[in-house]
């Protein structure tokens, strides 16, 4: 058992987790305030799970702790207890978490590269020699001739959609395929690219 009232760890479910050991809310908040003050950029916008020690008293005020975190820009996305059993995914946190889709109204020319923190919608085409990087999904309403890398921070649910597939490279969560290895059937057609296990799956999009 940690001697601290609270700490920050990455547990099995791969979320930074605020683990609370002390029944003293003030001590917990003081310590959190200190941690946030030391590295404000780390905490700002960070998704965390709460983990409350099993031996905390019933009257322990979880809400005041979570409100303190949220007030400092931390997204509380899950509440867990003990060894990490998930009690609840917090609904309020979810709405804070979503980053609005970025919409690019033009085409991306050769040599241009964009990076999106969320999903990105490109209304034009992506030329040969252009590159789209997104932490979320990529939607190309025009033709995709360049490179599209979705889920670049590891989001395995990210996907790529295009009205016309002719990419030089596609990648989802680090799994990539170069343009010469694309499915024959997908070339020039509307198609989606998703991660299926350890490989990419191409699906044609039909009306």
């Amino acid at each position: 058992m940690s001697p601290l009232p609270v700490d920050l760890k990455i547990l099995d479910y791969r979320l930074p987790t605020v683990r609370i050991f002390s029944p003293d809310e003030d001590a917990v908040i003081d310590r959190l305030a200190m941690m946030i003050e030391q590295r404000p950029a780390l905490f700002k916008g960070m998704d965390v799970a709460m983990n409350y020690a099993e031996d905390l008293p019933n009257e322990f005020d979880q809400q005041v702790i979570e409100e303190f975190l949220v007030a400092h820009g931390v997204n509380v996305v899950a509440r867990t207890t003990g060894e990490g059993n998930v009690l609840a995914f917090t609904a309020s946190a979810k709405s804070q978490k979503s980053v609005p889709d970025e919409v690019i109204s033009k085409s991306l020319r050769s040599g241009q590269r964009i990076y999106s923190k969320g999903s990105v919608v490109i209304l034009g085409s992506v030329s040969s020699g252009a590159e789209v990087l997104a932490e979320g999904s990529i939607h190309v309403y025009g033709e995709l001739h360049g490179r599209a890398l979705a889920g670049v921070q590891g989001d395995r649910n990210a996907a790529i959609f295009t009205q016309s597939m002719d990419a030089e490279l596609v990648s989802v969560a680090g799994v990539y395929r170069t343009g010469d290895q694309l499915d024959e059937g997908s070339k020039g057609n509307a198609c989606s690219v998703m991660l299926d296990g350890d490989s990419l799956s191409f699906q044609s999009i039909t009306q």
Partner: peptide, 17 residues
């Protein structure tokens, strides 16, 4: 850099990582 062309001249543009 910035105006590469050899990939096209060799037909390698879809094989670059």
């Amino acid at each position: 850099i910035g105006l590469r062309n050899l990939d096209l001249l060799l037909g390698h543009e879809k094989r670059i990582v």
